[in-house]
Design a protein around this nucleic acid. Structure first.
Lengths: 221, 221, 221, 221
DNA sequence: TATGAATGAGTCTTCATTCAT
DNA sequence: TATGAATGAAGACTCATTCAT
């Protein structure tokens, strides 16, 4: 998608011409779909090419190898939605509890629910075989994401709304179930036997509730 | 070859050794290693056999297929542990909060910390390509595991120690961070940029604390 | 290797040759040879490919599987002939006795005499191990073949030239010796002790004669 | 069977002792079944051994190789029922037509119908790969069998009951359908799609009828 | 003599990659 | 630049045969 956008901006040439220039973008699109769906090794380059409407040979004209294609796919799709969010959160006026709830729910709407979650699943699944990509993802996605959550928690602690938490740890605890949701959606969740065991919206609701108020009947004194 | 012969004589290792009792265990060991290291489809049965010190044919003497071998690995390393836990939990006498804490920590000691956690990572990564494995794992690991947690929660609710929870959802919320830990350890956790970001023991401690008592400074009234 | 290189230069045969049109035919030729020579299961796809001058992979470009290849061989060499026969028979103007004689003789010329007869031998030899092939053969060769014969007999009965026969049975009686000829040619006929015991043309002549007029000196009254 | 008989006659030792001696016979029995059922290459030596109640290793104690076993099986089972028949035919008093009918029907009862027909199927199927066996069979079974038929035909011709036939050819025409019946029974006849297409008894009846009196309504003048 | 665990060559099939056109 | 025919190195699994016991 990023590449396509760049190309579009570069020149507004008529369709036939652009077609040629757009090839890599179409291939990356198709590859993303297939890598998410089947994983790196089970995805077939024939199918990627076919879905992009070109021949297998053409694919190798743009990408040296399947691995090369994979890396390009992930790099292209690690987009930053974070700046937008940062703006939203700066302007947020409710309680920090509401802010947390809002953050997780909107994360689900914009990332978890969409195809973007497939990238996370993909990166985590193949991290062992592509360490550079894992590092890249860690830096470009996970750390900024964590920073966003950390800011919300810090706000709550500062205002006295939250207990005095170890922020670093707490961030992971918030983030873990979201990552779980994405993994689940693209793995067990896609299998018949366990398809609808986890309902994401309910899951997030309860997650926030428990995180905020705990399970014990007699609260901390 | 002359050298090889010399070595053979030095070790006096017979080419064919009959060790029927020991074989399956040795193969399962090697298989666990390789499955965790490379994933299900990338692990080669030849290599499993070689690492166990036998020929490819011998492997198929003990396991009908690669899938069968994998199932045996899962049973040996994960499923087998459930009965023990069940016993322990039956005999447990402390509070349900302590019980939950104990469950998660001992789960970490016996599974999460060990190579066995790699199995969970692998299953989630490749579930889509091997539906039969996904179903198997769902039935032999996830459902029994969930049942164990559900019993703890039910005990807490029954005794009035916990709030009246939607057990099914709560189970997922307990389990999700554990799955996250396993995924993390075998994906991002293995890359430099994030190696020690998540400390499992601390993570679990805080997870239990937050789950039990919540984050808000002013508890539910 | 030096020699090989020399030869290559001498011939100037390119390693990779693109001959999409010709490939299937060449493969079918080679496959027919090998299937007849070794039987279905003993014939090796590698050897078929090699004999056709292509790599193993190329064979699977044109035929989905060994079984698929075999079916194509059957269609090419046997099943394809039925429409032609049907045309010929439609246009046939002589007596039904002549028609029968012609059918059997031309069957011998076009199938029995050629390598194609080896296919029948092979199918009968291996039918039990490859039920799908047996069914295929039954449907694509035996039934159409029988239908052709049945039509000739029916014509003779209708015209009063033949006695009122049980057509279904009579068809088998006509067909049996033809199958015998094919079996014989590719089994006992290939061994010294019996090489020339059965002369097909004479055999067919006498077969038709006896079938038409019987052996007894005093005919039915 | 032949071997067993020999052994039984040789010594009437108690069961336990004889067991050991009987091994080869039991193996040949089991092997016959399996070779007939599946053919040479599809029959598994494990299964032969298992069916004979011994281990695979034991089989190779008695037979050098699978091929060796195969040859032994066929040799053992080419029994001669011919002398008996010869006696019967010498004493036969009816017409030659009746004699022919009787010969074919009793052949079906004693050979075609029984497991013995499996040997023929086996030998014809594997003749290409075992030429010595084909020769052996030709001499030991086919030629004597043909001689029997030839005598019947000669009797009919001599008595003026039959036309003046080329005996050599006529014999083949009589024998061909019988061989067809055996092949069919053990190949296509064993497949669901065509199980009962050919009814042997009816087939033989009609065969004899047509052979004797022909199909044409207006007989030879 | 009997066992059955162990072997390893051999089989079909797949698929990333190359290259003549 | 684009094609798609051709390649060949794997990979899972089988099975006749061997050999330590």
């Amino acid at each position: 998608m990023a590449i396509e956008t760049l190309i579009r901006h570069a020149d507004a040439t008529p369709k036939r011409e652009r077609r040629k220039e757009a090839r890599p973008g179409e291939l990356l699109e198709a590859a993303l779909d297939l890598f998410v769906e089947k994983g790196f090794s089970a995805a077939r380059v024939d199918e990627v090419a076919a879905r992009a409407g070109v021949s297998k040979g053409t694919l190798f004209l743009y990408f040296q190898s399947k691995e090369d294609l994979f890396k390009a796919v992930v790099r292209e799709n690690i987009a930053n939605q974070f700046p937008t969010w940062q703006e939203e959160f700066k302007a947020f006026e409710g309680s920090s509890a509401d802010m947390l709830r809002y953050a997780l729910m909107s994360w689900w709407e914009r990332i978890g629910k969409t195809r973007a979650s497939g990238i996370t699943k993909l990166v985590m699944s193949e991290a062992q075989n592509f360490p550079e990509i894992a590092t890249f993802y860690q830096e470009e996605v996970i750390q900024p994401g964590n920073a966003l959550i950390r800011r919300i928690l810090a706000r709550g602690v500062d205002s006295g709304e939250f207990r005095n938490l170890d922020l670093e740890q707490a961030v992971h605890i918030i983030v873990a179930p979201m990552i779980f949701l994405m993994m689940w959606k693209h793995s067990m969740g896609a299998c018949a036997a366990s398809a609808h065991i986890v309902n994401p919206e309910q899951f997030i609701h309860m997650q926030v509730d428990l995180l905020l108020h705990g399970m014990v009947a007699t609260p901390l004194t």
